[in-house]
Design a protein around this nucleic acid. Structure first.
Lengths: 349, 349
DNA sequence: TTGTATGCGTTATCAA
DNA sequence: TTGATAACGCATACAA
C-alpha cells in the first residue's frame, strides 16, 4: 500500500503539501493541488486511518455493543442510531456480545483502547466493573441504554417499563381476564440486570393489586428473552391445574414463543389465551394473529443516544440562532432520560 | 490515559521492559514482572490498540459488511462467523450498509484503511469497483458470500440456489399445484446482484419446464427481499383473474409478508395457498402455520468464511500430524465453494 | 536482563 | 506557499 510519502515523492512535493491537499486546508495553488490529486488517484493511495487515529487521538467511529444481535429489538435501535450518526460523518460499528458478559466487557475495553469517538451500550452485556474502570480514567463518551449502572456521570436512557407493564396488564384485566400469567425476564445471566427486567414484573404486580387480583407466584415463569424460552415457559403454564387465560410476556420474542406453544397445545391465541408482548419488533404486527404489545421507543432511543454523543463530540456551534449573550452555556443534555412505551392494541381482530 | 511510558517511569524500568511483560516475551525476572504488572493495575493502564496496529500492521479484528442488519438471515451467518473467529482471538465488528451501495463501499474502504485483518462481505452491498480497487493494491484477505464478483483471487462462497429453487418448486408441483407464482428478488438496487437473486428464478423456471407447466411471466412479481414487499407482491398476485394456488418466495421475509397478505384476503396459507420460502430464518419454524423453506447453510457459510481467513492469517502450523515431507505445501482452500440449501418441509401439518 | 533508539503513517508546528 | 521535523504510543533490533 502506498503511503503519503510515496505520493509526495511521486508528485515531487513534500509530505506536508500532500497532507494539505488531503485535508484541503491552507492555500494550496489549484494546479499543484490538481497534480497531487492526480498522483493520488494514480497510485490508488488511501490514507491510513490507523495512523490518523493515533495522531489525532480519535477515530471518527462510534461503537455500539449489543448483547444479542439476533434480537430484532436491538437491530432496530441500532438502525436509527446509525442513521443519525452518519449524518455527522461518524461511522458506526456494531459489536455483538452474543449474550456473554465476558465478551461484552472484552468488546468494551477493546473499543476503549481503539480510540472510539463514543461507545453506546445497549442491554446489560457490559459489566459494572468494566464501567467503573472506564469511569476512573477514560474520557470517551459512553451512553447506556436500558440499564441503570448507577453511575452519575454516565448518560443513561431508560424506558418506564413499570408503567407500561401496568398498562398492558390492566388492558388484559379490562378485557375480563383474572387469571393472568407473566413470562418474565431472567433473574440470572444476560438480560437479568436490564432496567426492564425488574420493572416489567413490578408493573404487572401493581396492575393485579390495583384490580384486587391476588398475585400468584406460580403464574410468573421466567424466560431468558429468547424465543424458545417463551415456548417452554408457556408449556409450563399450560400444564398448570388451572392455566391462565392471558399472558403478559416481557418481550415479543418470548410472546411469540408462547403463541407457538399455545398453538401446539391445540388452543388459539387470542380466543383461548390472550397474549401481550413487549418491544413491538416488526414481526409482531405481521404474524397471525398479530401481537398486542408495548412499543419500545426504539427510534427515539437510538436518536437520543446519537444526540448525546454529538453534543460531546461537536463543538456545538449550531445552537440555533446566534444569541447576544455569548457566554450562555449550552444546557447539557439531561444525564438520565426516561422514555415511554405505548400500548399497541392489535387484538381488535 | 496513561501510556506505556508512564508505566515505565512509575515502576522504574524502561519502556521495553514494560512491553516485554505485556507480551510476556523474553525472560523478565518474575519479581520485576510482578512489580510492573502491579503498577499497570494501579495506573489502570491499557495498551493503545491503535498504536499497536500502526506498529504491527494489523489489528486483530475482522470486519463483516452486511447489507441489512434487520434481516435475520445475515445475523445468523454473522453469529457463526464470530464464534469461529473468537476461538482464534480475533474480534469481529459488524458494519451495516443499511441497503445502500454507497454506504457499503464506504464501509469497505474504511475498513481497508483501518488495517483489518480480514473483511467478509455478505450480500451485494459492496460495489464491484470497490473490489477492483482492493484487488489492485491491497493484501487484506477478503471473502465474499452470496455474490459472484467474478474476481479470480477472491474467495467466494455461493449457494446453489438454482437447484434449491428447482426442488422447492418441484415440491409444490408434486403436491398437485400447477398455478405456481414466484415472488422474486429485486432486479434493481441492493439484493439485485446477489448470486441467489437470478438463480432462484432460474430454478423456478426449470422446475416448471421440467413438469411441462407453461411459464407465465405475470406470475413472477418482484420484491426487494424485505417483508413488506412480499406483502405487496402477494396482493398483486391475489388480484389476478386467476390467482395462484402456490407461491415460492425468494426469501422467508417476503414469504412471511405474503402470508400476511393471504390472511388479510380472508384466505388460509397452506389450505388455500401454499407458500414456500428461502433461508430458513429462525422465525420460519415458529410462525403459524410454519413455513416450508430452503435452509440456507448459514452456519456453514460463516464457518467457511472464518476458515478461509484463518488459513491466510495463521502460519498454518496445525496442518494435522507432522508429515515428513516438510516442503509439502498446504493445499490452499478452494477459492470458490458452492454450498447446498436443503428443503425443509413444514407442510405436513 | 534491561535500556536506547528508530520507525510505523499521519498531522501539526514552525521555519524558510 | 511549501518543506523539515517533532510528536502520537508502541514494538523491536541492537547496544549495554
Amino acid at each position: 500500500m502506498p503511503t503519503i510519502k510515496d505520493v509526495a515523492r511521486q508528485s515531487g512535493v513534500s509530505i506536508s503539501t500532500v497532507s494539505a491537499v488531503l485535508n484541503n486546508s491552507s492555500w494550496v495553488p489549484s494546479d499543484t493541488k490538481a497534480h497531487v490529486q492526480n498522483t493520488i488517484k494514480e497510485l490508488g493511495y488511501r490514507p491510513n486511518r490507523v495512523a490518523q487515529s493515533l495522531k489525532k487521538g480519535h477515530s471518527n467511529v462510534v461503537a455500539v455493543i449489543v448483547s444479542d444481535i439476533a434480537n430484532p429489538y436491538f437491530t432496530e435501535v441500532v438502525s436509527s442510531l446509525q442513521t443519525r450518526l452518519m449524518q455527522e460523518q461518524l461511522n458506526l460499528v456494531i459489536c455483538n456480545s452474543n449474550r456473554s458478559h465476558d465478551l461484552g466487557d472484552k468488546h468494551f475495553e477493546f473499543m476503549l483502547a481503539r480510540q472510539m469517538d463514543g461507545i453506546v451500550i445497549i442491554g446489560d452485556s457490559v459489566t459494572p466493573s468494566a464501567l467503573e474502570r472506564w469511569q476512573e480514567r477514560d474520557d470517551v463518551p459512553v451512553v447506556a441504554i436500558e440499564r441503570d449502572y448507577g453511575i452519575e456521570q454516565l448518560p443513561t436512557l431508560l424506558v418506564d417499563s413499570e408503567q407500561a407493564a401496568f398498562e398492558a396488564t390492566s388492558h388484559l384485566i379490562e378485557q375480563g381476564h383474572t387469571n393472568i400469567a407473566m413470562i418474565a425476564g431472567p433473574t440470572q445471566g444476560v438480560g437479568s440486570t436490564t432496567f426492564g427486567r425488574s420493572t416489567r414484573l413490578e408493573g404487572y404486580k401493581r396492575a393485579l393489586e390495583t384490580a384486587g387480583i391476588a398475585y400468584k407466584p406460580h403464574y410468573v415463569v421466567e424466560g431468558d428473552f429468547q424465543l424458545p424460552s417463551g415456548e417452554r415457559a408457556m408449556t409450563v403454564l399450560l400444564n398448570l391445574a388451572q392455566y391462565p387465560t392471558a399472558v403478559f410476556a416481557a418481550n415479543d420474542l418470548m410472546a411469540i414463543g408462547a403463541m407457538k406453544s399455545i398453538h401446539a397445545a391445540g388452543l388459539r391465541t387470542r380466543e383461548d389465551i390472550a397474549v401481550v408482548g413487549y418491544d413491538d419488533i416488526s414481526i409482531a404486527s405481521i404474524i397471525t394473529p398479530s401481537l398486542t404489545t408495548l412499543a419500545m421507543p426504539k427510534r427515539e432511543l437510538g436518536e437520543a443516544a446519537a444526540e448525546i454523543l454529538l453534543r460531546r463530540l461537536r463543538p456545538s456551534t449550531r445552537t440555533g440562532d446566534v444569541t447576544d449573550t455569548k457566554t450562555l452555556p449550552l444546557a447539557p443534555p439531561p444525564l438520565r432520560q426516561i422514555f415511554r412505551a405505548a400500548l399497541i392494541r392489535r387484538d381488535s381482530a
